[in-house]
Amino acid sequence: MNATSGARRIIRVDGVLDASAADRLARALADGTPDADVAIDLSHVRAFDDFAVMMLGRTLSARGHVTIQGLRQHHVRLLRYLGLGDGDGARA
C-alpha cells in the first residue's frame, strides 16, 4: 500500500485485500485530514475478501469524500447494500 499526496490523496493497494490490509487502509485513512479528497485505487488487487470489503465500508462511512477505483461488481454491490456508493464504485 502506498500513498501519494497533492491536491488529491491517492492510496494504492496491491496484492490481496484481506482483513489486515483493510485495517492498514483504515489506519492510512485515519492519518489524513477527515475532509480531504481521497482516492483508493484497488485496481492492482488480485483477490478480495468479502469481510475486508465490509470493513472498508465501515471505514468509509466515517470519512468525507472518498472515491474507489478497481472494485469488482460484486464488491460494489456489497458497498451499495451498506448504503455506500453511487453504483459505479465511487462514494460521494
Rank of each mutant, 00 (worst) to 15 (best):
A36G: 13
A36N: 02
A36H: 09
D37E: 05
D37C: 11
D37K: 05
D37W: 05
D37R: 06
D37A: 12
D37S: 14
V38N: 01
V38R: 01
V38I: 13
A39M: 09
A39R: 10
I40W: 00
I40V: 15
I40G: 01
I40Q: 00
I40T: 03
I40R: 00
D41T: 04
D41G: 06
D41F: 00
D41R: 05
D41Q: 04
L42E: 09
L42H: 08
L42I: 08
L42C: 13
L42M: 07
L42A: 11
S43M: 03
S43P: 14
S43N: 12
S43D: 06
H44M: 07
H44I: 01
V45C: 15
V45Q: 07
V45M: 13
V45S: 09
V45F: 09
V45D: 04
R46T: 15
R46G: 05
R46F: 01
R46A: 12
A47V: 03
A47D: 05
F48Q: 00
F48C: 04
F48W: 13
F48E: 01
F48N: 02
D49E: 14
D49F: 06
D49P: 12
D49Q: 09
D50S: 11
D50K: 01
D50T: 15
D50Y: 02
D50Q: 04
D50V: 15
D50C: 11
D50N: 09
F51W: 08
F51Q: 06
A52N: 14
A52E: 11
V53C: 00
V53F: 00
V53S: 00
M54P: 00
M55C: 11
M55E: 08
M55V: 12
M55Y: 01
M55H: 02
M55N: 11
L56Q: 07
G57C: 10
G57R: 08
G57W: 10
R58K: 14
R58Y: 00
R58D: 05
R58Q: 07
T59F: 05
T59H: 07
T59A: 15
T59G: 02
T59Q: 06
L60K: 10
L60G: 02
L60P: 00
S61G: 11
S61E: 11
A62S: 11
A62R: 11
A62K: 15
A62P: 00
A62Y: 06
A62T: 04
A62I: 05
R63V: 04
R63T: 07
R63I: 02
R63P: 00
R63E: 11
R63D: 03
G64R: 15
G64P: 01
G64C: 12
G64A: 13
H65L: 12
V66E: 02
V66L: 08
V66K: 03
T67H: 15
T67A: 15
T67W: 14
I68D: 01
I68F: 13
I68R: 00
Q69K: 07
Q69F: 10
Q69P: 06
Q69T: 15
Q69G: 13
Q69A: 13
Q69L: 12
G70D: 12
G70M: 09
G70Q: 09
L71A: 14
L71F: 06
R72I: 03
Q73Y: 13
Q73E: 10
Q73M: 11
H74D: 07
H74F: 06
H75E: 10
H75S: 12
H75T: 07
H75M: 05
V76K: 03
V76Y: 04
V76T: 05
V76E: 14
R77F: 13
R77G: 10
R77P: 11
R77Y: 03
R77Q: 13
L78H: 01
L78M: 14
